[in-house]
């Protein structure tokens, strides 16, 4: 690890790097939480003791997000079609704002993700949330890996047949 990322709060650059890393880590946690089942989120949350009261900022609501693709895969964007999304937001007494955005229509899941996102941002709770994320990530990864092994079994192995007489 280099000097700038190690130092905390020393000068604007160190601060910026820390914030960028923090944003990346929070995004990584949300990437997993967004794909989790409501029950595993609820079970995980219950394992955290002394949870603070949450203030609802945005009651859970259903809505749409227009999913975009790119022409040819990497060109100009176009509108592919909409996806249903549920979102919620809440705040810890210490000010951290948690946001939950999940595909589909599931208020409970959106609130659970928002709750865990808020707790993740609070230093004392982050390790506990990371443990929950890790457990879910392991389950998702195992599922992905199983799918990959099944897909890999359908890979075509060509063998060339000699045609005509070249000798």
């Amino acid at each position: 690890m280099d000097q700038t990322t190690q130092t905390f709060g020393q000068g604007a650059f160190g601060q910026e790097a820390t914030e960028a890393r923090q944003a990346e880590a929070r995004q990584a946690a949300l990437r997993v939480l967004a794909r989790a089942e409501a029950d595993e989120l609820a079970t995980g949350l219950e394992s955290i003791a002394d949870r603070p009261e949450m203030e609802t900022l945005r009651a859970p609501e259903f809505g749409l997000v227009m999913a975009r693709g790119r022409i040819g895969g990497s060109g100009a964007p176009f509108n592919l079609g909409e996806v249903t999304v549920t979102r919620a937001a809440l705040r810890l007494p210490t000010g951290e704002v948690g946001q939950g955005h999940v595909l589909g229509r599931d208020r409970r899941r959106a609130v659970l993700v928002a709750t865990l996102d808020a707790l993740w941002q609070s230093r004392p709770y982050r390790p506990a949330v990371e443990r929950i994320v890790e457990k879910i990530r392991a389950r998702l990864d195992a599922g992905e890996a199983r799918k990959r092994t099944e897909t890999a079994a359908t890979k075509v192995n060509f063998f060339t047949m000699v045609r005509g007489e070249d000798t």
């Binding site: 203030e55 609802t56 900022l57 009651a59 609501e61 705040r91 000010g95 704002v97």
Partner: peptide, 14 residues
């Protein structure tokens, strides 16, 4: 600012 975030519809639909 944090206080800009509160005070939305309590129930967005109704």
């Amino acid at each position: 600012k944090a206080d800009a975030l509160s005070g939305g519809f309590f129930d967005p639909v109704f």
